[in-house]
Design a protein around this nucleic acid. Structure first.
Length: 291
DNA sequence: ATGGCTGCTTTGAGCAGA
């Protein structure tokens, strides 16, 4: 976040001039909390979606995240899944309109959380009140293998997500849906497209669901800018996959038009993947100008 | 062909992840 306290009060509408959004599948927040706190401190990210927290709500480290200067909303279950949204307290009022899971898709698994974040306004004028952001953190089912029950569940989950996000986009001009989509959108997002051809995470039906989300008006922040080749967000723990950069780009920041038009940079931060006891995923991020 | 790592689990070998 770039703090921007301009001298002329009539023109100041927010306490920042730049908004940094990110997503990170942490593969157990119990294990990864130190990495997350370190990353927040380094990046000063404004809005962060987490996936695979793997924590029941009673064990969620809310106090540590509060102490780091972030609002947090979360929903978990034993052992699997679990999602959260962190919002920089200096930038946003406390989250409102929190929704857990897709209202259109009854689900025993906790894989979606949505919240509205209202930027603090440095003006009392309602006309200068900055627009709120609808922020959604999703953990799309893995799908196991093409043709399995889990794969069918993944496709049904994504169809319902499409319908829900269509509704959400009609209600919120500034919307960001971030998360682990468990889909590599194109072959250039895959280290070895021949090996992965029509395999889970890369199959045509899954890619069709991802395209369907974009057809609602969302943009893949990563592809709004020139990027180096062979940038990925997940690497298997086995076989030295990270060292050999044998990865997939499956974690994405999707932006509505109002945010995409102001997106200035995007990328994937591989630094946390180099730490001891890393998550197998790296955070993906996007920077948007606020005006 | 298989399993390779990692985290979790009413502590253990088995599941799930991707």
């Amino acid at each position: 976040m770039a703090v921007n306290l301009r001298s002329n009060p009539c023109c100041v509408t927010t306490v920042y001039s730049e908004l940094k959004l990110a997503t990170w599948n942490v593969n157990s927040l119990r294990v990864r909390l130190p990495h997350v706190l370190q990353w927040l401190d380094r990046t000063q990210v404004d809005l962060l979606g987490l996936q695979e927290t793997k924590l029941v709500d009673a064990k969620f480290p809310k106090a540590d995240i509060d102490a780091a200067g972030y609002h947090v909303v979360f929903a978990g279950q034993p052992t699997y899944n679990g999602v959260a949204i962190l919002a920089r307290a200096e930038a946003f009022e406390p989250p409102t309109d929190v929704v857990v899971n897709n209202p259109l898709f009854p689900d025993e698994q906790v894989r979606l959380i949505a919240a509205t974040l209202q930027p603090w306004a440095l003006t009392s004028s309602p006309t200068q009140r900055p627009a709120a952001i609808r922020f959604i953190s999703v953990y799309v089912p893995n799908g196991a293998a093409v043709g399995t029950d889990k794969y069918d569940y993944k496709l049904r989950w994504l169809s319902a997500l499409h319908d829900y996000i269509g509704q959400e986009l009609s209600r919120h001009g500034q919307l960001a849906m971030v998360g682990d989509y468990n889909i590599a959108p194109e072959d250039r997002d895959v280290h070895d497209p021949a090996i992965w051809h029509e395999q889970v995470l890369c199959s045509t039906p899954e890619r069709g669901k991802f395209s369907g989300l974009l057809s609602l008006g969302l943009r893949d922040a990563f592809r709004l800018h020139d990027q180096p080749d062979q940038v990925y967000s997940w690497w298997d723990y086995r076989q030295g996959a990270f060292r050999r950069n044998r990865g997939l780009r499956i974690d994405h920041v999707l932006l509505s038009a109002a945010l995409a038009d102001r997106c200035r940079a995007s990328g994937i931060d591989t630094e946390p993947r180099k730490l001891e006891q890393p998550s197998d995923h790296a955070p993906a991020w996007a920077d948007c100008a606020t005006s």
